[in-house]
Every structure is written in structure tokens, then in C-alpha cells.
Simulated assay, not measured.
Amino acid sequence: MNTTDQHPLVAAYLDAVARETAELPAERRAELLADLREHVEVSGAEGDDQIRAVLAGLGEPRTVAASALAEEAPAGPAAPPSTGRTKLTAILLGVSGVLLLLNPYAGAIALIVALVLLWGAPQWENRQKLIGTATGAAVPFVVFLGALLGDASRIGPMEVLLILAFSLAVPALGAALLLRALRR
């Protein structure tokens, strides 16, 4: 062993780096400490002032550890979003329109849950969340507007089919757009 390895300043520095890198795999931590130790030895520093200068050049132990931990993190893309939660959001959003017509309470609950899941999900951007919200809320909005403006006695079979088609198509389109956005 070199005398710099036994120097109290070097030992304290290496101990601090070892503590800060406790999350690293043992072999990676040992490699890092060996590299730091070698750097100090190769510098030929003697005396407290020179050793302090070399250690300062290496950086604070916390900074060295943060760099090592960042290098150890997986370089690939972020973990994929939970597919179960994503599918549930899309399904609830897609069926909320028909459910609102068949059972207003079940439809309202499905729509509210879908919107809460949608806005709490990190995988979609705000623009996509707004599109999902607009397509999900379109059915209750149109039904409410129709109730305010129209006379229910004038609704014939053609109007019922149009309302049903709208209630199926618009929320399903919103769900499809959300799922498509994930594949990009």
C-alpha cells in the first residue's frame, strides 16, 4: 500500500464516497474506490495541502457518488406505463358514453374514474389528456344540451340511433387516440 492510501484525509474521503455509494453494486463501488485511490497515488501528492488539492480536484464525495449512481442507472427508456391502468383508463373512457345513456349513475362514475386515471397518468401529455377529457365529456354535454333545448316527445328512432352512435363513437375515438399516442 502506498502511504497516501493510509493518509487520514484520503481514508476519510474514500469512506465518505463509500457511504454515499452504498446503493451501488459492491463490485462497482470497489472499482470506483480503487480508481479514486489510484488517482491520488498517481498524483504523487505528499503532505496535507497537496492531498487536499488532489481530493478537491476529484470533487466532493457526494458529487462523485451522484455521478457514479447516475452512470449505473439504466440508460434505456423510462419504465413503460402500467398497461393494466392504461387499458382500464381507455376502456372506461370508451364505454362511458353508452353507460351514461343506459344508466346515468354508472356512466357518471365510469367517466369520473376514467378522467381521474387519465389526469393522474404520466404517460400522456396535457394535450392528449385534454382530448380525452373533451371526447369523454362530449356525451353528457350533448345530452344535457339536448335536454335543455329539446322536447323529448319529438325524439324518433332516427334520433335515438344518432345519439347512440354519437355515444359510442366519440368516447371510443378519444380512447383510441390515447392508446395510439402511447405507441408513438
Rank of each mutant, 00 (worst) to 15 (best):
D5P: 04
Q6M: 11
V10N: 02
A12R: 04
V17N: 06
A22I: 02
E31L: 03
A34D: 00
A34V: 03
E46F: 00
D48Q: 04
A56G: 12
G57Y: 11
L58F: 11
P61A: 10
A66C: 04
A66Y: 00
A75Y: 09
A75L: 15
A78V: 13
T86C: 05
K87V: 13
L88C: 10
T89R: 09
L92G: 08
S96Q: 06
A108E: 01
I109A: 07
A114P: 10
L115G: 12
A121Y: 12
A121F: 09
P122Y: 03
P122N: 14
E125G: 15
Q128H: 14
K129P: 12
I131Y: 10
G132V: 13
T135Q: 08
A137M: 15
A137H: 01
V142P: 04
V143I: 15
L149G: 03
G150F: 11
S153K: 14
S153C: 06
G156M: 10
V160F: 05
L162I: 10
L164D: 06
A165V: 10
A165M: 12
F166S: 04
S167A: 15
A169D: 02
V170P: 08
A172L: 14
A172G: 01
G174T: 09
G174L: 08
A175W: 03
A175T: 02
A176Q: 03
